[in-house]
Amino acid sequence: MSITIRPVTGYAEYTACEALQRVVWPDSVVPLNMLYTAQNNGGVVLGAFDEATPGTPLVGFVFGFMGRDGNNPIKHCSHMAAVLPNYRDTRIGERLKLAQRDAVVAQGIEVMTWTFDPLLSRNARLNIRKLGGITRTYKDNVYGPDPVPDDQLPSDRFVVEWWLNAPRVLTRLSHPEQAPSVAELLEDSILLNPDPMLPSLPIQGKRLVLRIPSQIDALRESDFARAKAWRGQLRMAAKDAFDLGYHIADFASDEGYGYYLLVHEPV
């Protein structure tokens, strides 16, 4: 496999971005005219192309644009990052985010934000552990519907803040092998939610840990009530911790669970 990351150009490649979105998100497609307009007005649209396959197909892409939060300086809002299913777990998503970072840093922008489902271990590992993002904002049911049907989970999201030139980020990017084990993450920490069917523990201390299932999609199919309990418990515990000044600073996982580390210290 030989993957090249570069800006998307031309009608055929923008159309390929549309087609890839239909595979990953069948009900939500950003059309090529919006991708083109954003890319030519300060936005970023990067593709991952498989050079080893005839026709050099697009197998992944990222898309983002400039934005701002209230009175804060300009930021980059990363809206989409997708990789075809048969190319996942090959670091393409990570490479796309790093290339996006390079493009945004070249614009003089210091922070990038995006959202992800807090119950997805794969995304947490990339966003928090590998890239060095933090989160201190929880958003309920971002994409609806409202009310949520009984057979669906609310579309809750963490907001990732990626401070592109922060020392902690540069350290993570230059020393990816220094990831903590679950035991190291739990050491001197309070595990707030050992069981989703029971109340969380009181929030206290400098280091907290929130547990999530490692395979929420499989759990949703096999035991929906338990998956829903994870969603509700994590929502309440995370929002309470964020309100008290904690933020998520690290992540580790084993075969059964993922673990978010929350700290009460300056970002």
Rank of each mutant, 00 (worst) to 15 (best):
D240T: 12
L20Y: 10
Y36I: 13
P180E: 01
C77Q: 15
R22G: 02
T90R: 15
L32A: 15
R91E: 15
G205Y: 08
H247V: 10
K75Y: 05
G70K: 03
Y36Q: 14
S253L: 09
R95H: 14
M112F: 02
F61P: 07
A38R: 12
G47E: 06
V263Q: 13
M80T: 11
D254P: 06
V159H: 01
L46M: 08
S222R: 14
Y138I: 00
A82F: 09
L173C: 01
P118C: 07
D102N: 14
Q204C: 07
F251V: 04
A183C: 04
N141A: 07
T113C: 10
T113W: 02
F158N: 14
L201S: 08
Y259T: 00
A179V: 07
D188W: 04
E221C: 06
G93Q: 11
G64Q: 10
R235N: 03
T37C: 01
R68L: 01
G42Y: 09
K75E: 08
D27I: 05
A82T: 05
P154N: 06
R122H: 09
F242M: 00
K75R: 15
T135F: 05
R207Q: 13
S78I: 09
E265C: 05
I5R: 13
I92C: 08
P7W: 04
R157S: 07
A82V: 15
Q178G: 02
S78A: 12
D140A: 13
A12T: 08
Q100G: 12
Y11C: 02
G43Q: 12
N86L: 05
H76G: 02
P149R: 14
I92R: 07
E94Q: 15
L192I: 15
G55F: 04
Y87I: 04
L244N: 03
L201E: 15
N123C: 05
R95T: 10
P7A: 10
G67T: 15
S28W: 11
F158M: 10
L244K: 13
F61T: 09
L192T: 11
D156E: 04
R68T: 14
P167V: 08
L173H: 01
P202R: 07
H264M: 14
S28A: 14
R68G: 07
Y138A: 03
F116D: 03
H76V: 02
D150Y: 04
V104P: 08
A16N: 06
K75P: 03
I109K: 08
H247N: 08
A237Y: 09
G144Y: 03
P57Y: 01
L126E: 07
Q178I: 02
G64D: 11
V160T: 09
H76N: 06
G258N: 01
M112Y: 06
T53S: 06
S78C: 01
L98I: 14
I203R: 05
I212M: 06
V29C: 12
D89W: 11
L20P: 06
V45I: 13
G93L: 12
L46A: 04
D217P: 00
G47L: 05
V209G: 01
S181Q: 02
L164I: 14
D69R: 14
G144M: 08
N33M: 06
